[in-house]
Design a protein around this nucleic acid. Structure first.
Length: 505
RNA sequence: GGUCCCUUCGUCUAUCGGUUAGGACGAGAGAUUUUCAUUCUCUAAAGAGGAGUUCGACUCUCCUAGGGACUACCA
């Protein structure tokens, strides 16, 4: 069909923090744009001034920065199709509403909210459409001179789309195929409000997508019911030949129970539903974020990508670049996906193990500082290297598992099961002997330690490792003994051994 | 209520008419191991129900049930 360059957009409204489902929608848009050599646009849909929340726009931008998803164009990125903030496009919408009015595809409605409310009470399942607009106060039902008068008086009005009934409207969806809805069930949607001279979502969306030359609209399933209306709008403007292709993504559902994923589920079950920590400017309420919780952005993206899509192979771990290569919008699933946050934990674990120690070290260094430990970065990196294969979901969980690297055990408690099991009458003598051996070593490297101690253990018929661990760690945790001793160094190793012997006897 | 969308192990999913219905998370068991882990092996676990179409349906059609979304001068 069209040879147009692929252009997609992510267009949130700045009404609060970015929901994790929105992140997935943006990710799919990004993957689609990249794999087609297209462009990814960031647009702000702030046509509802009442719901504007300060800081939300910055929050969303910061979220994508953290996640590593760049936009090519839009608010904060520039581009030739701006402005990209809908509140800055008033004049444009006004013009296009005028076109619809002139061509008779839309009309003025003067009904007040109270009148509408009354009608809804009066008539069950009231809908403003071809069957009811005759009894309402609008430019279709009122005499022309009265309409004129109302306008001169400055009466507040709304522009409604005139939906012609009785027509099957087809929406071709990339994921769901052909979706048909009869126009009779559609209502005459409000497109524009004279009160604030701003359009509603539907109008702004169509005008912007057209003017910004958007080729594919990839959005959440909640938009599927209004997609036919959008098709009708493209038609009303005469833009059918360049109408974007639609793809409606399945929703993210609660991990348990019923319904879609909400912030409350996260609070209740203990996982974030927002990429970044969010401080609500009105209530002061703080919501946890993936970043602050210790997730790696690549892990979050990988986890999200697989909620509703998969490459068709058994591969689950993939980089952003791989996803760009493998993604296929047609292979997205149709059904909603329960948000399996336990699997998200697994992804983070996998990514921690895959990530270079040098990259992880600064993260762990922060945790160490919070615990009053200052250490050279090489030391921190070495510890991360020895410990990251432990069963941890987050780097911060490392601290209680490896405090002994930095803090020598002060007391050796026989209350500890591991100590009790491994410290017998002969242990003190054995460790004293082992200490003497270690003291004679010039080379305290892992290799040197291993060959010396292994040899000693074999010839003496001893198994010194667990008691030795007691001495250096204080309990049954930590890395390989040789790695640990090499890290601590000769002096500290011997000091700890002697102290243990002294205390435990 | 109305409209639309959806329905394979507990969860995410593979299968695009012919398979012992595969993988992963989680669960359980075992092996390896100088601690905790890692790693490895194994086990349990699914086509919502009912009609069709077909030589043959998880796969196509219809019905039922269930789930979800939408139904604002919000997006």
């Amino acid at each position: 069909m069209s040879e147009r360059k692929v252009r997609v957009r992510f267009a949130p409204s700045p009404t609060g923090p970015l929901h994790i489902g929105g992140v997935r929608t943006a990710l799919y848009n990004y993957l689609f744009a990249r794999q087609h050599g297209g462009e990814f646009i960031f647009r702000i849909e702030d046509t509802d001034s009442n719901r504007f929340v300060p800081g939300a726009e910055e929050y969303i931008l910061e979220s994508f920065r953290w996640l590593g998803i760049p936009f090519d164009e839009g608010v904060g990125f520039g581009g030739s199709h701006g402005p990209y903030r809908q509140s800055e496009r008033r004049a444009i919408y006004k013009e296009y509403v005028g076109r619809l009015l002139d061509s008779g595809k839309a009309y003025l409605a003067f009904d007040t909210p109270e009148e509408l409310e009354a009608k809804r009470k009066e008539i069950p399942n009231f809908q403003y459409d071809a069957s009811t607009r005759g009894m309402m106060r609008n430019s279709l039902s009122l005499p022309a001179d009265e309409v004129e008068k109302l306008r001169e008086e400055g009466a507040q009005y709304v522009v409604r789309f005139k939906v012609e009934p009785g027509e099957d409207v087809h929406v071709h969806d990339l994921i769901r195929g052909d979706v048909v809805i009869n126009s009779s069930i559609l209502d005459d949607k409000v497109l524009y409000k004279s009160s604030d001279e701003l359009p509603t979502y539907h109008l702004a969306n169509i005008v912007d997508d057209h003017l910004m030359e958007v080729t594919h609209v990839i959005r959440g399933e909640e938009w599927l019911p209004s997609a036919p209306l959008h098709v009708l709008l493209y038609r009303a403007f005469g833009w059918e030949d360049t109408m974007p292709r639609f793809a409606h993504l399945p929703l993210l559902l609660k991990p348990d129970g019923k319904g879609k994923l909400s912030k409350r589920d996260g609070d209740r079950l203990g996982f974030p539903v927002f990429p970044l920590e969010w401080h609500d400017p009105k209530t002061g309420e703080v919501s946890s974020g993936y970043r602050e919780s210790g997730y790696l952005p690549a892990a979050v993206l990988n986890f999200l990508a697989l909620l509703g899509w998969n490459p068709g192979t058994d591969q689950e771990i993939m980089s952003l670049d791989e996803m760009v290569r493998l993604f296929d919008i047609a292979k997205c699933s149709k059904a909603g996906a329960k948000f399996d946050y336990v699997k998200g934990l697994w992804f983070n674990r996998e990514y921690i193990q895959m990530t270079d120690n040098g990259e992880l070290a600064p993260v762990f260094d922060k945790v160490l500082r919070e615990n009053g430990i200052e250490a050279p970065m090489e030391r921190v990196e070495a510890v991360v290297g020895m410990m990251k294969m432990k069963k941890i979901n987050f780097i911060k969980e490392l601290w209680p598992l490896c405090d002994f690297f930095f803090i020598a055990p002060e007391t050796y408690s026989r209350e500890d099961k591991f100590v009790r099991k491994n410290w017998t009458e002969s242990t003190a003598a054995d460790l004293t002997e082992l200490a003497a051996l270690l003291e004679s070593l010039d080379d305290f490297s892992v290799e040197a330690l291993k060959s010396a101690v292994d040899h000693w253990a074999e010839t003496q018929g001893k198994k010194p490792w667990n008691p030795w661990r007691v001495a250096l760690v204080g309990t049954g945790k930590g890395p390989d003994m040789y790695e640990l001793a090499a890290f601590l160094g000769k002096e500290e190793t011997l000091r700890r051994m002697r102290k243990a012997v002294e205390i435990l006897g």
